[in-house]
Design a protein around this nucleic acid. Structure first.
Length: 289
DNA sequence: TGGTATGTTCCAAA
DNA sequence: TTTTGGAACATACC
């Protein structure tokens, strides 16, 4: 389901309810989602206070305070470590992970895979129809997020940074943009949207872009993500609701419909095993790798 | 029944 | 070596 804008929206919504709270219980109904194990996640988070809730790529991250809890360390160990010795809870929603409050009336709630109880008496449910999501506890943040590429909304994402990502390798644009070790947070929808807005074909070769095309692509990526966040993401089925960006998508899900810019019917292709949407007129195909 | 789905990973093939 | 294709993970819907 969720790409960067949806994850950002979820983090913003959860933050006021989670920061400062302490986990009092962790219940798991699906063992394989926990990394490295259900017991390790429970040991890592129960009794610990959340000091910060944030996002890295498509991960929801909770920094945990080093105090109380069964995993308490000695002063010497603490001094030798980073400032988050309480570790980090990282959640990746993959295709269908989502959160729901247990006290929110919803009689059709299904696919509950875990529950997080908090010290204010509330229970945060984690639902995941397809069981692809991951709930990770780690004291080494870098072991999980270290391979991720640049955050496209951060300052460092300059035209020069994008040029470095595109050059020196001959890859099709779409698979390259989906590669989380290059740019972190783009998924299938916003990659298609950004390529349309930049007027670039998804199979265009990365190292053959001009500086002007790179600048256009960078601008398009940022504009698409910012607009999606402004609209609280794209709503689909029950996997993610509450956003309004679906009304503003130019190509994704619009196969056969007229391009909003030139009226040419939008085409649906298969690229890197992903449904891919293009306007054949606005995104001319000009040579592959 | 078969095809499809907002994601990631692993392996084989090119 | 690098890049791409296919399958796998698991479930629901059309």
């Amino acid at each position: 389901m969720p790409e960067l804008p949806e994850v950002e929206t979820i983090v913003q919504a959860l933050r006021p309810h989670l920061e400062g709270r302490r986990f009092t219980r962790y219940i798991s109904r699906w063992a394989k989602q926990a990394v490295p194990s259900t017991a390790a996640v429970r040991r890592g988070i129960v009794g610990r206070r959340i000091t910060r809730l944030w996002r890295r790529a498509k991960f929801i991250a909770a920094d945990l305070e080093d105090s109380g809890g069964p995993g308490r360390r000695s002063r010497g160990e603490r001094a030798a470590s980073d400032q988050h010795f309480g570790g980090h809870l990282l959640i990746h929603l993959r295709m269908s992970g989502r959160f729901d409050w247990a006290d929110r009336p919803n009689h059709k709630r299904r696919h509950i895979r875990a529950a997080f109880d908090l010290d204010d008496g509330r229970r945060l449910l984690f639902c995941d129809m397809r069981k692809f999501a991951k709930i990770i506890y780690t004291t080494e943040l870098d072991a999980v997020t270290g391979q991720l590429g640049i955050e496209p909304l951060e300052r460092q994402f300059t035209a020069t940074a994008l040029e470095r990502a595109l050059y020196g390798r001959a890859r099709q644009l779409k698979p390259l943009l989906l590669d989380q070790t290059v740019i972190a947070g783009l998924g299938n929808i916003y990659t298609d949207e950004a390529l349309f807005q930049a007027g670039l074909h998804p199979t265009a070769c990365s190292e053959r872009l001009s500086r002007e095309e790179i600048e256009r692509l960078r601008t398009a990526i940022r504009a698409v993500l910012r607009k999606a966040i402004r609209h609280r993401g794209t709503s689909f089925d029950e996997a993610y609701l509450g956003g309004g960006m679906q009304k503003y998508l130019d190509v994704y899900g619009r196969a056969g419909l007229p391009c909003r810019r030139c009226k040419t019917p939008i085409e649906r292709l298969r690229i890197a095993q992903r449904g891919t949407h293009v306007c054949p007129n606005c995104q001319p195909f000009d040579g592959k790798c």
